[in-house]
């Protein structure tokens, strides 16, 4: 037997990062007319990798396909996995149709998280636009659970209409806390809405934070993040204290499929959370 044959101990049995685990849908909860939260439990005997705030999973609907969705639950709660998403296509539509007991394939968690540990000692400003509140929520849970490690905690949240506001009971709870400032605004409202109207960037100039010791976590449509960053920079926050979460087409989430590239980055593994100064140059290039 020569060496070539000896080398034939194939790694065929090695774990395939593309292979999901089948989770059970415990509950599906409507958040607004087109958004919903899935509560998922892992299969018996499977120990999920704990996630960090800002990470995402690949969700697979048998017979339909797979898509990347951020995790919206509490990182300290390892019992149930929460995914909040909007119905935007075939996979999310199918996920929206899931009833308790359905199976959903999960692989992950993937991606670079919000650097909550690095933000310790600082004021933390969360700026969320639309569904962008979902990926920020685990980080909010984290800083509130470690409240003494942080300075002021501010949440600025912009939604399209009052009807589109996510996590309303939770927002009410956070608003009532004395150690957190919550400002919500909507782009348009009809009579009867007693809250703020105007874009989320309007909230930044008045938000209470110390510009020299602030970490800003921003998540929303890319164009909204662009203007939000400008406002925060305008308040005098250093660009190294600003983080954004980007969204790109992802087929594998492991850096193989190439779809999510943005300049030198694979958004799936170098991101989705990026420090602004590192990704600024690439965000400014059209159709990159």
């Amino acid at each position: 037997m020569i060496a070539a044959k000896e080398r034939t101990k194939a790694a065929a049995g090695a774990a395939d990062p593309m292979r999901p685990e089948l989770y059970r849908v415990q509950r599906s909860r409507r958040e607004s007319s087109d958004t919903f939260t899935l509560e998922l439990t892992p299969p018996r005997g499977y120990k999920p990798t704990p996630f960090q705030p800002g990470q995402f999973n690949m969700l697979y609907m048998p017979g339909v396909g797979e898509c990347a969705i951020s995790i919206s639950g509490d990182p300290a709660d390892d019992g149930v996995l929460l995914h909040t998403t909007r119905v935007v296509g075939t996979v999310t539509r199918a996920l929206n149709g899931c009833k308790a007991g359905s199976r959903v394939g999960i692989r992950g968690p993937y991606g670079a998280p919000w650097p909550v540990a690095e933000a310790e000692g600082n004021d933390v400003v969360f700026v969320a636009g639309g569904i962008g509140l979902a990926p920020l929520r685990p980080a909010i849970f984290h800083v509130l659970a470690h409240r003494r490690q942080y300075g002021r905690i501010v949440l600025l949240y912009g939604a399209r209409t009052p009807e589109d506001i996510l996590f309303k009971p939770m927002l009410r709870k956070w608003s009532s806390r004395l150690d957190m400032d919550v400002y919500v605004t909507v782009d348009r409202a009809e009579a009867g809405w007693r809250g703020n109207v105007g874009v989320v960037t309007n909230l930044i100039k008045r938000a209470p934070f110390d510009r020299l010791n602030t970490t800003a976590f921003i998540c929303g449509p890319e164009i909204m993040m662009h203007y939000t960053v400008l406002e925060i920079l305008g308040r005098g926050v250093n660009e190294k204290g600003i983080y954004v979460s980007l969204e790109r087409n992802m087929k594998c989430a492991t850096g193989f499929c190439g779809h999510c590239q943005m300049g030198p980055f694979f958004v799936c593994k170098d991101g989705p959370v990026f420090r602004y100064d590192k990704v600024k140059r690439w965000m400014e290039i059209r159709e990159l």
Partner: peptide, 19 residues
């Protein structure tokens, strides 16, 4: 500028989404 951003209606997303 704020009104222009409001006009963008950026949380609505483009119509005809399929992903």
């Amino acid at each position: 500028q704020a009104t222009r951003l409001q006009l963008l209606d950026f949380y609505a997303g483009p119509a005809g989404a399929k992903g």
